[in-house]
């Protein structure tokens, strides 16, 4: 990988495109699985929005719609025992890691059967058996935790990597820089995945980050290998991540990925997709590169799948999401004595 790789006008890195050409990995089962995972996240998020409107879900709800390719492509390159950790827009990472959609939805409903027994909520999903170490809602605050997970695996002499997802809005924070420095200093096996969706709430990267044109440059300044990739192309993400994971697992120190993406919805449920800080036209323009559309076009054009496959996947995912909502809805709320449980560990 070339550290100084430049973006082409489509936002796709030339090296990522090269990987697809020379190592297609275009196995039918694999690509349909990637599509299915992205579709699951998409339909889960759409259903979450509906449930929010019905007041089944409360609090803050940040949807991952538009950014699915990053979670799915990255996690496809991981082993089940690698660690993943995320910020508050975390449903996609949790589902991509294989968490049961019913238990995730139940957590959003605040039910006893939720992943965290209803104590975490949308922004704090944790699935420890799947090594999904949580969603964290203080911007930048979980990046040091990721370095700690990586520190531990190195200390324990395990060949594991830790992937840390965060938005570009975390990059100016002091905690991000402290973590980058420590990761570089101690050559920790951590992969920073910056999901650059171009806005921290309503403030564009241009108005918040001095290095907005090259966010990965923040990592390079600490001597961390970094690359900007097209975060809308799940195959590009997966293939770059496979190389990166292999390299980091091999002890070559941390890596920083800046995945260019776009959030199709508002920051949370309290703001519209467009209006005050970005135009409808801008959103429409980015929707043309919807990660689901891009992969579907690739699959159809390479004859790895047919329309019938997509109809089948829609049906299957639809059933899963419907069942998840039913499970969440029918589950009980936590008993009130749970209030005091788990404040302290035994």
């Amino acid at each position: 990988m070339n550290e100084t790789d430049q973006m082409n006008p489509s936002g796709q890195s030339s090296s990522a495109r090269l990987f697809i050409m020379i190592m297609p990995n275009m196995d039918r089962v694999d690509v349909l699985f990637l599509y299915r995972q992205m579709l699951l996240i998409r339909r889960f998020e759409e259903k979450s929005a509906e449930m929010y409107a019905l007041a089944k879900i409360a609090g803050f709800l940040h949807l991952y719609i538009g950014e699915e390719a990053i979670a799915v492509g990255t996690i496809a390159a991981l082993r089940p025992d690698d660690y993943a950790i995320s910020a508050y827009r975390d449903h996609g990472h949790c589902l991509a890691r294989g968490s049961d959609p019913g238990h995730v939805m139940a957590e959003l409903f605040g039910k006893a059967t939720g992943l965290c027994q209803g104590k975490g909520g949308s922004m704090h999903l944790v699935d420890a058996p799947r090594r999904f170490m949580g969603g964290y809602a203080i911007v930048g605050g979980h990046i040091p935790l990721a370095t700690g997970l990586a520190f531990a695996t190195k200390y324990q002499k395990l060949d594991l990597v830790t992937v840390c997802f965060f938005g570009e809005g975390a990059i100016p924070s002091g905690q991000a820089h402290e973590a980058l420095n420590l990761a570089a200093l101690w050559k920790l096996p951590v992969i920073f995945v910056c999901e650059n969706n171009r806005y921290g709430m309503g403030t564009s990267a241009e108005r918040a980050i001095a290095l907005y044109a090259d966010v990965a440059g923040a990592a390079r300044s600490y001597g961390i290998m970094a690359e900007r990739i097209d975060g809308m192309d799940v195959l590009a993400v997966r293939d770059v991540m496979r190389k990166v994971v292999e390299q980091v697992r091999g002890g070559k120190g941390p890596f920083f990925i800046e995945a260019m993406t776009y959030r199709f919805m508002g920051h949370s449920m309290s703001d519209p997709a467009h209006g005050h800080y970005r135009t409808k036209e801008e959103v429409e323009e980015h929707r043309k590169r919807d990660p689901l559309l891009l992969l579907k076009e690739t699959i159809l054009s390479t004859d790895l799948g047919t329309e019938a496959d997509f109809i089948q996947l829609e049906r299957e995912v639809g059933e899963v999401v419907t069942a998840a909502v039913k499970f969440a809805d029918e589950s009980p709320f936590p008993v009130l004595s749970e209030l005091y449980n788990d404040v302290l560990a035994e």
């Binding site: 660690y83 170490m133 605050g141 990046i143 040091p144 935790l145 990721a146 370095t147 700690g148 997970l149 990586a150 520190f151 531990a152 695996t153 200390y155 324990q156 002091g174 905690q175 402290e178 973590a179 420095n181 420590l182």
Partner: peptide, 15 residues
């Protein structure tokens, strides 16, 4: 903040 956070992460992983 950085090294305390790192220690918390390490504790989450069993140290």
């Amino acid at each position: 903040a950085g090294f305390t956070g790192l220690a918390i992460g390490a504790a989450m992983a069993g140290l």
